[in-house]
């Protein structure tokens, strides 16, 4: 039995390479308008990566804006060909910085806010359906989004960059600051964990997934 290895995670960089390169050149020369065209081209991808990694729309907005500012300040040093991968690596760094910042900051208790009548009602970020709830709805996307949030942060970032945004191993390694071997290891573990999570959702009372076998 021979199954050709296939991946459906195609790169989302649908913009013409020549047009992007021209905009990059103008942006490197200090043309803010040209850079803003690049922003408009790639802001959805940048925001998606930030939101899926952080899980919080306000934080994702901040991170995306911060990433574009960083990108403009550092575009003079950009010499690669894949602007999208370079931009997403900046988003990844900004998102990880934001996550570290959130950990350092004392978090406000939702229960305390709920008990305080003077405080406005908090609008917690949509954490999405739990795997069990997703199983009931049967929506693959929701299951996958929920399973992504169950992953460790390092694994989540790698699998997002690889399978969602289509970055190569070396690009992920450059973006995350880890060796390529670590990228491969994290990617395989993340995929295996997602498979087990999804399998557990789909077969809650049936055959246990491999994750349950391991524990």
């Amino acid at each position: 039995m021979t199954e050709p290895p296939t991946t459906d995670a195609a790169p989302r960089d649908d913009f013409p390479a020549d047009a992007t390169a021209a905009l990059v050149q103008r942006a490197r020369a200090g043309d803010v308008a040209a850079f803003n065209q690049l922003v408009l081209q790639h802001q959805d991808a940048a925001y998606s990566l930030a939101l899926r990694f952080l899980g919080s729309p306000p934080a994702a907005e901040d991170v995306t804006q911060e990433a574009f500012i960083r990108a403009y300040r550092g575009i003079a040093k950009f010499e690669g060909e894949r602007f999208r991968a370079w931009l997403l690596s900046i988003v990844a760094n900004a998102a990880r910085d934001e996550l570290r910042r959130q950990r350092r900051r004392p978090q406000r208790s939702l229960d305390a806010a709920r008990d305080d009548p003077d405080q406005p009602a908090l609008d917690p970020p949509d954490s999405g359906p739990s795997p069990e709830t997703s199983a009931l709805t049967g929506e693959l996307r929701g299951q996958l989004e929920a399973a992504l949030r169950e992953l460790p942060e390092d694994w989540r970032m790698v699998v997002l960059l690889s399978d969602v945004h289509g970055l190569a191993y070396d690009e992920i390694a450059a973006a995350t600051g880890v060796p390529v071997g670590t990228v491969k290891s994290r990617l395989s573990r993340a995929r295996g964990r997602l498979r087990d999570l999804l399998r557990g959702v789909r077969e809650p009372a049936g055959l246990p997934g491999r994750l349950e076998d391991r524990r």
Binding site: A9, F35, Q43, D44, A46, R141, D163
Partner: peptide, 15 residues
């Protein structure tokens, strides 16, 4: 994962 659509940015992040 590859078929996950990109989320639409809530606003323009132009600088």
């Amino acid at each position: 994962l590859g078929n996950l659509e990109e989320l639409r940015a809530p606003r323009a992040f132009t600088i």
